[in-house]
Nucleic acid binder design. Structure first.
Lengths: 332, 332
DNA sequence: TTGAAAGCGCTAACAT
DNA sequence: ATGTTAGCGCTTTCAA
């Protein structure tokens, strides 16, 4: 029923090797033969079986993508970058959500490897030691996208989160604030708990502003968490006059909460975000924010993976992309 | 180097058939043998090669997912529903973006079929006749998620878009508006150009409100398009006092534009949306909206696909899920 | 309960 | 330039 390379060979009066050659664009085929074979392929609607091909060649031209949650815009944006470049290099993608669960990540990696992917791009907000171990012992290359392996052993693509966060907090400091809150996503995520937090503290210290632990509130990165954080911060003595938000949702929530409390943004209170998704322009006032090049991170990660899969030279396994500060109207 | 079923067989002093049986949970294996084999599998870290398995069994336990754009939250939400159910039934997903291009869709379908997927879930805002044709001639089942095939030949999961749109427009009518705009996404998308539009017209007609074509403005579904639409509508004679927006982004833009023009929402002008994403609660006032059960549509579509792949009885190939109206504060 | 053996559809030497 | 053939790692009859 399904037509195989053998059927084509018979119909075209050539061997299957020849058919295989024309299908794979091998130049060692007389134009006339090629033409004949191509015709038969067309007539029979022959479609090469990639599974058989994969078994014989040990290459599947598919890569695995492990993502925390595809319905989260941050990751979706990364995924788009990954997929675009994958397509460009003729790879397909097996995409699975890990929900940031370590056991799920490990399990996914295992099933992807059993499916013989040629490589994998992984996103994980906390690269545990077992994941690091799994990456090291993987038979195919794995690159981290927007995820940091503190040991820097794995190939990865990121921005300089510390530097970016420092800049953000500095905007607030420069504008004269002394009471600056850090409303963050989960602190057990490396980017938050290590880089942003350290940058926040350092920036304050460099400006001789005393650190007040009460001004650091971490939850999830959702709108509701932002609202809750505002409430929580409202009861501390000398409440914050400025907020460094870990995400756009958090920032928007902070703005709305402030406005509901009768504050003017940015006149009474300023907010700076760390993301710059399309949401940033969908609030009034529009968000000032560190701009994360999410799509690019995904794209570069996939590109890096193709290089490694092809055993090309790569001078730097841990690439750091540039970021920038997008000043709009939630800061003065 | 990589350990095969043969290595395991040798080490365990059984035939590969037996190893295959224990790997596949076949009951015809003596417990003692099973135990022995399992031990060897563990010791050798044997990982079955899914590609070889796929070739031999003609099943890959992977399904294709063709999506317009994963970075668009609507589709990302659908994708999450699909993936969750796929995981539940032990399928993996090959995910590709079509950008709503017909040739891309066809091409993706072709490569997915060549990769021997067991089925595919497809999202497409306009199911062209060549796609319909491709679906019909596909060797594996294909189900449409949140996408309508007007001929109703393909399996699909949707809500009743006409009914939903009718309800939305009716809210505005009930609130006394006579000048109701329809700010839509692309009208060549079936849901917009056929269902919503027809419902809009019918609702007006049923309320004896004269249709004014000028009040129908279609563009893309982005924030900027919403802003542009507001501007455009501002210059018509007797500008609209209420807006039926095709998406949350459009709705938010409309609200902001109205507010910038000095209007109070919902007192001066009302807006109702058609989506109800998390964005709906991230504006002030919060959006009244038709709630699309995106995740469920994806989940049910995948569930339907598993049934068809298993050749189970399905009484209805075109399932219609319930929707509801979420009234918040952008309408009175 | 277990094993032997024939494929699954293709690639990749190796010959010619 | 083309053909022959031996796998790739597994599933699945069919026998035993």
């Amino acid at each position: 029923m399904t037509v195989t390379i053998y059927d084509v060979a018979r119909e075209a009066n050539v061997s299957m090797a020849t058919v295989s050659r024309v299908v794979n664009g091998n130049q060692n085929v007389k134009p006339a033969t090629r033409k004949k074979v191509l015709e038969v392929i067309e007539r029979l609607e022959y479609r090469p079986n990639a599974v058989a091909r994969g078994l014989a060649s040990k290459k599947t031209t598919t890569v695995g993508v492990i993502i925390p949650d595809i319905s989260n815009t941050i990751y979706a944006e990364l995924a788009r970058g990954i997929e675009d470049i994958a397509t460009m290099y003729s790879y397909n993608i097996i995409l699975s959500n890990s929900d940031q669960k370590e056991d799920k990540e490990l399990e996914l990696l295992d099933t992807m490897l059993s499916k013989q992917v040629d490589g994998v791009v992984m996103m994980s907000d906390k690269v545990s030691s077992s994941i690091q171990q799994a990456i090291k012992s993987s038979p195919v290359p794995i690159v981290l996208a927007g995820s940091v392996d503190e040991k820097k052993e794995a190939a990865s693509v990121n921005i300089d989160y510390y530097e970016a966060a420092y800049e953000a907090v500095n905007v607030l400091i420069k504008n004269g604030h002394k009471r600056i809150a850090f409303v963050s996503g989960p602190l057990d995520y490396t980017i938050n708990g290590v880089y942003k937090l350290a940058a926040y503290k350092q920036a304050l210290q460099d400006a001789d502003i005393e650190l007040d632990e009460q001004l650091i509130v971490a939850g999830d990165s959702t709108y509701d968490d932002g609202i809750a954080a505002y409430e929580e911060l409202t009861v501390v003595q000398a409440p914050p006059t400025a907020y460094f938000a870990g995400s756009d949702e958090l920032a928007i929530a902070l703005i709305h909460a402030a406005q509901d409390a009768g504050k003017q943004v940015p006149n009474d209170t300023e907010v700076i975000s760390f993301e710059n998704s399309k949401l940033a322009r969908m609030v009034r006032p529009q968000l000032s924010s560190i701009a994360l090049p999410l799509y690019d991170i995904g794209a570069v990660a996939m590109r890096l993976l193709t290089k490694i899969m092809n055993k090309e030279e790569v001078q730097e396994q841990t690439v750091v992309l540039p970021h920038h500060l997008e000043i709009r109207h939630s800061t003065k």
